[in-house]
């Protein structure tokens, strides 16, 4: 699955640590999701979408 997390984070000038704190996850989780090594669960995907005030499909896309 592809995602726009890195771009969205950069637009807000957030570091991975900033995003991790906002999502209450580890920095490694953010890194793993951004690099496509790990696909988040639906609840975490909703938390990410809520944080960026977007719909899930605007952040995550099929390969």
């Amino acid at each position: 699955m592809k995602n726009r997390l890195r771009v969205l984070r950069a637009e807000r000038d957030w570091s991975q640590q900033d995003l991790a704190e906002r999502l209450a996850v580890s920095r490694q989780s953010v890194n793993a999701i951004e690099t496509g090594k790990y696909d988040p669960s639906l609840p975490l995907a909703f938390r990410i979408a809520d944080l960026f005030e977007m719909r899930i499909e605007e952040i995550f896309q099929r390969d």
């Binding site: 209450a24 996850v25 580890s26 490694q28 989780s29 793993a32 999701i33 790990y38 988040p40 669960s41 975490l44």
Partner: peptide
């Protein structure tokens, strides 16, 4: 563990 990535 609440962090799903670390748990996985």
């Amino acid at each position: 563990e609440k962090d799903e990535y670390l748990r996985a």
